[in-house]
Design a protein around this nucleic acid. Structure first.
Lengths: 241, 241
DNA sequence: GCAAAAACGTACGTTACCGAACAGACCCTC
DNA sequence: GAGGGTCTGTTCGGTAACGTACGTTTTTGC
């Protein structure tokens, strides 16, 4: 019918919808490009659309008074940008920025609210996703306090890797440093360590993961906790083929 | 009719319910004592009840593999312990522990799920609360990374103070240290600083806040951000008289 | 009333990360 | 193919918080 269908369902939430809902949604979704650095929403501003990334990755971050950003969570093809729409607050104190360029589908906020209010299946999948997102945020809080930069770097690379295809991340150390809330030099050190350990290879804004299992071993437990919770709440049996 | 009514509505969520719902809920709620240190739920375990604290404060925390705890958020008379029930996950990887003894009301998880599914008013208030909780978690993550122990201590004292009556907190420095994920000695130092600045007075497990405004000035912005978001999402006009 | 436990105080070496400054390497453009 | 911007590497002093150890004071319990 429409050609967007197969592509859009690379987003896990869209893929988890029952067929009747999905058919209806095809008229509501619109493919959009998501360029690196694009701001999807600003603190306190009501969103006009929500976004279902397919290949892009979006960072939710809080920008402090002194201008320093701190990442709260990351959203990719497993989720939706704009949970505050159906949670009822319309906006949040945080900001959403595209961290890895790609594509996604957007839907008018009002349309999503209507769907949320009328379809139990929609409500169910969105709320379960939100709970998984809560776990990610919680674990970020714990990780920020307790784990070393090296461990956090591994966690972050893995979270990004899970939301991309292939084994290559296109992002500078500067960007990673901003997300983790550390100095760029710290990331250089950490990345050097990982490269020397043979886990990654990198050059100017490109990181290739050579040994994923090694990264997982070197990461703190936070990554596994979050991953497990996503899998539990949004089992892959619900997801795209 | 029942005597529990006025007391229970010291919980903001219960106070925000429309009258018809509230009448129905009186048969579903049960007053319970919440002793210091009591575990309200454990990671991965399905909750049999949800809890609406009235005078108690509960910490949500994640216990790391090495046994060290890290606080994720705090819940008092403004909220509910057990959001995973209506979010659909039934459990979480975190643990909930009573941090300040008091009372609350509990309700069977199934009853809450039924109410959530049938009453839009219930759904609305619970989801808005959950969004506020998300903000608290987010800000905890940011704060853990960027702010000094002193600032975090102020934030934490204020968050606790808001959930209590009076100006006295009954809690040891050891407990606070566990919540903040820092050393007990660090809290001693911070508390000494605050006492010397004339903001608090304390003796063995009792902290009296002398200058609330001073604490707010000394705190990082995180406290204000969270407070503002709670006020926005659950305006006091909805709350108890 | 005395021992034991609980809570708080202090001190010292260690460490991870910061801030700042600068140097080299790569890349694009003109 | 020169030059300017971007990205990464390295260094060095500074510092906040850590781990550990041990004291002191207050409370509790027999």
């Amino acid at each position: 019918m429409t050609e967007i269908a197969p592509d859009a369902r690379r987003n896990d939430l869209l893929a988890a919808l029952p067929e009747d809902v999905w058919l209806r949604w095809q008229g509501l979704l619109e493919r959009t490009e998501m360029d690196l650095g694009r701001v999807m929403y600003e603190p306190g501003v009501t969103l006009s659309h929500v976004y279902f990334p397919t290949t892009a990755i979006v960072s939710l971050l809080y920008v402090m008074e002194n201008g320093a950003p701190g990442e709260i969570a990351v959203v990719g093809n497993e989720g939706i940008v704009g949970v505050s729409i159906f949670m009822g607050g319309e906006s949040t104190p945080s900001r959403a920025v595209v961290q890895s360029a790609g594509y996604g589908y957007r839907m008018k906020s009002q349309a999503l609210k209507d769907e949320f209010a009328t379809s139990v299946a929609v409500l169910r999948v969105l709320l379960r996703y939100t709970q998984a997102l809560i776990t990610q945020m919680s674990q970020t809080a714990v990780c920020n306090r307790h784990h070393s930069l090296d461990q956090q770097l591994c966690r972050w690379l893995l979270l990004s890797l899970d939301r991309l295809e292939g084994d290559e991340l296109v992002m500078t150390q500067e960007l990673i440093a901003n997300m983790l809330g550390v100095r760029r030099e710290g990331v250089t050190e950490g990345a050097t360590n990982l490269q020397e350990a043979g886990l990654i290879r990198y050059t100017r804004g490109r990181i290739t993961v050579l040994d994923r299992a090694g990264l997982e071993r070197r990461s703190c437990e936070c990554y596994a906790v979050v991953k497990k919770e996503y899998d539990r709440l949004l089992p892959s049996s619900q997801r795209a083929a």
